[in-house]
Design a protein around this nucleic acid. Structure first.
Lengths: 96, 96
DNA sequence: TAACTACTTGACATTATGGCCATATGGGGT
DNA sequence: ACCCCATATGGCCATAATGTCAAGTAGTTA
């Protein structure tokens, strides 16, 4: 049993991942870094929206960014988040 | 690259876990089933609130419930969700 | 059946989230 | 300096999530 604060912090991390578009971004980044433009094309949502999602992910420290010329490249800092896909898949399967 | 729908479904599962109180509940249930009253005492939040959180977890199929007398017992259906704690801890650590 | 305990649900107010548009900002090229 | 491209940010709106209180349901006991 952890402290209330500890759960809050962990919840914040999970919340940062708990979104359709952000999951899509994470999944793409798990295959290697890429720049914002590509994420915009891939996700099909507005550029400003992608930028905000990236800010959310940056905020919890799951991704890191690096500017190279005009483009900003993002990459996954903690690849373990990819395991979430495995478990959520299990949950979805168990339910059926 | 999965379908938009697939990401949406997985996001729903993560969303169900991405809450301080629900994480606390999950953590408690990972040590074995228990009834609502105990979760209420443990979390310190209102019973109706706990009940709603349990409904959320039930909704995605992470927990299962069984009535025995007056009490309703909950248990974790997909224990892999506990691994989330490991990863979120890594994320929090990497950030510091 | 009435009273009690244990839990769930509905109605509602408050706050958070996600999307788009318009507008900054940062860097490169001319 | 200027313009252009790639990103980021602020404002706004619609919708979803959370909590509280009150009322409802289910099972137990007298």
């Amino acid at each position: 049993m952890k402290s209330k604060q500890a759960y809050k912090k962990q919840a914040r991390v999970l919340k940062a991942l708990a979104n359709e578009t952000r999951l899509m971004i994470i999944d793409r980044l798990s295959q290697g870094e890429c720049h914002v433009g590509e994420l915009v094309r891939m996700s099909g949502v507005d550029q400003s929206t992608v930028s905000k999602h990236l800010a959310t992910l940056r905020g919890v420290g799951v991704v890191d960014d690096e500017r190279r010329g005009n483009a900003v490249y993002y990459r996954l800092v903690t690849p373990c988040v990819v395991d979430f896909f495995t478990c959520t898949a299990k949950v979805l399967k168990a339910r059926s």
